[in-house]
Each structure stands twice: as C-alpha cells, then as structure tokens.
Design a protein around this nucleic acid. Structure first.
Length: 581
RNA sequence: GCACCCGUAGCUCAGUUGGAUAGAGCGCUGCCCUCCGAAGGCAGAGGUCACACGUUCGAGUCGUGUCGGGUGCGCCA
C-alpha cells in the first residue's frame, strides 16, 4: 500500500469538498497537486504544494489559501498537525499510530511488501541482452542483462503483464563468418590441419566442442565440399549451439527470458514486405538519395538511390535506408520487422535495453515504432554505458581479437551471481560503471552488496537471538503491541519502510532500477545506525528481557526491515543472506 | 560538421519526475565495544550544481546558447 498515493487522494477529496461548499471556486484543476516527502524532517512527514499551484485559480494569496486547505486536512485520519510554511506549503505530521499501521502492513505483507496493481495489467515487452549469437556473453553484456531483467521484475511487481524477450541477430554476414569458423574447427576435429585461421573469423576456443559435436553427428560429410554446400547448414548448426551457450550463460546469472525472436525467421516469413506495405500505406517509403555525412566523409562515398523510410517525420534527423544497394535488407529493416511484430502481439509499452554504442539508432527506431503504431505505443530505449572491469584498482586487459575477453561466466564464477547482479545496479544505467573484482568481495561498508546483506543478516541475528535468550517469548509480529514503538529512531525507521512501496512504484514508472539499490543502501544505513544507538543507550536495544511487550514490538520492527530488504533483493534477483560467514 | 549521453564536495556518484537551508560513500580530523554481529556507528571540515541567458510563486531538475568529456554518423550487425 502506497500511503502517499492514498494521502493524495484524500487531499484531493478534501479540496473538492471545499469547492463544493463554496469555500473555493468550483472550477479548480487539481492535477498539479502533489504530495512529497521533504528531506528536512522539520518540514513534517509529508508536504503538499496544493496552495501554491491553486493560488492563481483560487484568486487568493498562497499562504491564505494554504490556511484554508490546511484546516480541512487536519481532520484526515492520522494527521496531528497541518502547518502552513514557507511560500505556502502545507506540512503534515502524523501520529505514531499512523506509522504503527504502516509497519503492520509491511510485516503482514512480508517479502511481498510493495507489490501493487497500478500497472493494471498493461502489457509491457522488455527486450534485453540480444547479443549476436557468435560467442559466449562477456562482462559488457551482463549489465544490460541485469538492467533488463530487474526492470522486468519491477514492472511485474507493480502489476504489469511483462514479457522478457531476446532478439537473435541470426542474419547477415557475421553468421557466414561464424559458419566458416565452425567449418575450420570442424576440419580440425576431423583430423585435418586447416592452417592458420583466416582473419575475421571467430577464433575463440568455444567453437571447438561445437565442431566436435558436429563431427560426431555428421562424420566427414562436410569435408572437401564447396562452401556453398555447407555455409547454410553449418550456420544453422552454429547459431543453435551459440544460443545454447548464451542461454546457459544467462541461466548462470539467473535470467530466463520468455521469448527468443529470430531476425532470420521474421524476414523469412515475409515480415519485411508486411512492414514495407504498412509504412508505404502511410506514404513513408520512397526512393531517394541521401546527403553524405558532413564531418567524417567516407572515402568511397558516392550518391546512390535507395529505398528510404521517412523517419524525419517522427523526430529523426535524416531519413534512413532500409535496403542495401545490392538489394538485400539493412539491419534497420530487420529491426522494423521485429518491432512491428511486437506491436502486432499487442504490447502497450515497448522497452529495449541497448549498449550505449547503439545510441545513434534510438531516434530511427522510435520513429519507426511511432509510425507503425500511430504514436500509440511508446518505445523507451535504455542505453547502458560500459563496464570497466578492474581487479584491485587495475584495469583487466581484454582483447577481443585474441579471444581473451573476460566472459560473463568468468565473472560470475569469481564473485557470484548475486554480487554481479547487485553491483550492476549501483549506477544509473547511462553512467560508466567500475566493477572491481576485489572490492566487491570485501566484507566492509565500501562494498554496497555486503552492507545491505549485513543489515539483513543482523535482522536475522536479532530474531535468532530472541528465540535463544527468551525461549518462552511468543513471537507473532502481526499481534505485537506496536504502540510500544515511540522512540524517534524507531519511528524514523518505520517511515523509511513505509516509503518502500512508493520508491518501487517510482522506480518502475520511470524505468530506473538503480533507485532501488540506493534505497536499500539508505535503509541499511538507517538500520545500522539504529542498531548502534542500542549500544549507547541500552534501553533502545531490541531485546529487553524485562519487557516482553516492548521486545515483541521491536522484533516486529526488525521483521519489517528484514521484509523490505528481502523484497528489494527479491526484485534484484539476489538471495538475502541470513548469516555472514 | 550533425545527433545522442554525461558535467553536482579532493575522488566515485545520488538527488523523490519543478519544491523549502543540495545529499551519500571513499579520503581527511576527532570520537564510540562490560552491550542483540565494531564486518558497524557518531561528529566535524569540504559546493559559483561547467558557464550565460530564459520560462515561474519557485530551477541541480524544464528551454535556448556556449565550453569540456564520451558514443555514433549510407551499402556493419
């Protein structure tokens, strides 16, 4: 339950009451009325800008209007103070009972706390990873993989119907090169000595077992035959093998996507024609000649007439070619087909997670979706910046050419899936991220994963201790006398727990999973702080042997903290730790 | 040349969709274990939010321009 949301509804209702009674003009538009949580605690538990945004329409000075509205808000349930402050804010303060109810909700909901139905079943498609099927995933892919997966988790948690999807770029010249690499390894597997591998093929060792399994299946059937005979079949074989590899890599990260869409299959079933017809019907396809790019003009530039999509009508900078000069389709054409397919499957919202190096394609893709959906379906594209892999502060050298890049699997093997997932979310997705293999394994507050896990483990520790030291204590968090929680630190902790549903909704709506990482860090800090207060002031400790009711109430608070941390980590796909080693 | 992303404390970064006196971690200084896990906590110092105009009750946040860094720019995917 998002109490800020319900409080806004109550505020709007109160103002409407004033409008109906004639205290305020009847035609005020309340859309801009907002409830937010001031950073300065002296400004109350929540504040509303209602008087500021309505002053003009009400033809009253903001502070005078604020006084009228504040009077009405004082009768809301749980409100003990409504003060006019600053230019016309109304600061609301709640009684402890209000917060005790919030804690009760959190404890009752457990690790499911914060889930909501505000998504109302909106069909959302999240496409992520979509790495070319030419080799195992490397660290760079891990970021997009985690961002996409957690984005999907968040959206699902607030009530959207989410499909997790992977787009397989299994067409084009790269697949021919993959097939040639497989054939070269296959000759090796068959006992031939094929000589040095030609430039441009995929030299990685990972093709060796694929070649062996091919040889085991087909024997020497593909030896000594012209390329045209085997290029297609071996390409198919290699793609299937690479996708198995990639699916395994993703599984290691805890990722299981629902749909794997093939570029080649889309084109083969006539998707390009369908897309072309759809766009042509809107008058968006024409034959034309593009201007050369101004700054870095390619040496071999010559004007050519090509089939173009009028993307400039939808916010793009130039119209984009969808057909190459040799008559085959561009990559963009395949992507149009794919996104039209997503639209045809009835999604209300599309989200693509891409690497930042694809930023130049955002506008044209959004233009295409806008054109194909007549502006009805938004396409949000999340660009993920590079991950700098470090080891104890030193960059880890990687050479893709030599095939010595660090794979996703290497990193997961080194630090574990949970650490990889969490760390990938500790920066906004469009910021560079340093990933230090040494630092993320440290057990100190420098390590955000550890810090949050430590808070969770401490919660578990207290609950374990309660059972041990007070064996006859009845532990039923739902029935605990929460009115015993009156300490300012306790109430502050509850206030933070209560803001979790709002944080989750906000992060989901804005497609920003990193916000949850920061929230968890702040909650952990608040808990550690409160914990240590018990060191200075023994009466604030969670376990008070001579006061069972107080202990029960505080255990409920601990259970609430544990629930929210577990809920957040659950959305991250990270297992909460109950005990540190 | 054009487009997109970024510019906030010495460093690495948040900033609740435009709110009040801009925050956290690291680093620095000084403190806190007879005590539920000190693997932690408290306090202090540290700022022209790159710069300049503009929009309004109010701008780190929105608009325009400038500077600086990154990414990309027809027949690669």
């Amino acid at each position: 339950m998002n109490y800020v949301r319900s409080l806004r509804a109550a505020t709007v209702k109160a103002i409407e009451g004033l409008m109906a009674s004639g205290a305020l003009p009847p035609d005020l538009v309340l859309d801009a009325v907002a409830i937010d949580m001031p950073r300065d605690p002296s400004h109350g538990d929540v504040a509303t800008n209602a008087a500021l945004v309505l002053a003009k329409g009400a033809r009253k000075p903001p502070r005078e209007l604020a006084g009228i509205i504040a009077q009405a808000l004082r009768s809301l349930d749980g409100v003990v103070a409504a003060e006019v402050a600053g230019p016309g804010f109304i600061n609301l303060r709640f009684d402890d009972r209000f917060w005790h109810e919030r804690l009760h909700e959190a404890v009752a909901a457990g690790a499911g706390y914060g889930t909501a139905d505000v998504g109302a079943g909106t069909k959302v498609n999240v496409e992520y990873v979509s790495a070319n099927p030419t080799g195992p995933l490397h660290v760079g892919h891990a970021r997009g993989a985690v961002v996409g997966d957690v984005l999907a988790n968040m959206l699902a948690a607030v009530g959207n119907a989410v499909t997790r999807e992977y787009y397989i770029n299994d067409a084009g010249a790269q697949i021919d090169q993959l097939a040639r690499a497989l054939h070269w390894r296959y000759r090796e597997a068959a006992g031939e000595t094929p000589g040095p591998m030609p430039e441009g093929l995929y030299p990685g060792e990972y093709m060796v077992p694929v070649a062996h399994s091919l040889h085991a299946r087909d024997g020497g059937a593909w030896l000594g035959r012209p390329e045209a005979d085997w290029l297609g079949p071996l390409g198919d074989y290699a793609i299937a093998a690479m996708m198995d590899l990639i699916r395994d890599d993703l599984a290691v990260l805890g990722i299981h996507q629902d749909v794997f869409s093939s570029e080649r299959a889309g084109v083969a079933r006539g998707g390009v024609d369908a897309a072309l017809v759809a766009l042509d019907a809107k008058g968006l396809i024409y034959q034309g000649v593009l201007e050369p790019p101004k700054g870095s003009k390619p040496d071999d530039w010559e004007p050519r007439e090509q089939t173009l999509f009028r993307s400039t009508g939808f916010g793009d900078d130039v119209d984009r070619p969808i057909r190459k000069s040799d008559g085959s389709w561009t990559y963009f054409a395949g992507d149009i087909v794919y996104h039209l397919d997503k639209l045809n499957r009835g999604f209300d919202v599309l989200i693509d997670v891409w690497g930042a190096d694809h930023g130049g394609y955002v506008k044209r893709m959004q233009a295409a979706v806008k054109a194909l959906s007549d502006g009805r379906v938004p396409l949000d594209i999340k660009l993920c910046q590079l991950v700098n892999l470090l080891d104890n502060g030193q960059p880890v050298r990687m050479s893709k050419r030599a095939g010595t890049f660090v794979t996703l699997r290497d990193v997961v093997d080194a630090v574990g899936k949970d650490v990889v997932r969490f760390v990938m979310l500790t920066r906004r997705n469009d910021m560079h991220l340093d990933f230090d293999l040494t630092k993320v394994r440290e057990q100190s507050k420098d390590n955000p994963v550890f810090y949050v896990q430590y808070a969770h483990a401490r919660c578990c520790s207290v609950l374990r201790n309660a059972v041990e030291t007070m064996p006859d204590l009845v532990i039923d968090h739902g029935a605990a006398p929460l009115d015993r929680l009156v300490d300012a630190g306790e109430i502050a902790l509850i206030r933070m727990l209560a803001s979790w549903p709002r944080t989750l909704e906000g992060a989901a709506e804005s497609h920003e999973p990193h916000r949850l990482a920061y929230f968890l860090g702040e909650l952990a800090a608040a808990f550690h702080g409160h914990w240590n207060r018990g060191g200075d002031i023994p009466s604030l400790r969670f376990l008070v042997a001579e006061d069972r009711g107080l202990t029960q109430a505080r255990l409920a608070l601990v259970a609430g903290v544990r629930a929210v941390i577990a809920a957040g980590l659950g959305i991250f796909g990270v297992a909460p730790v109950e005990q540190l080693r």
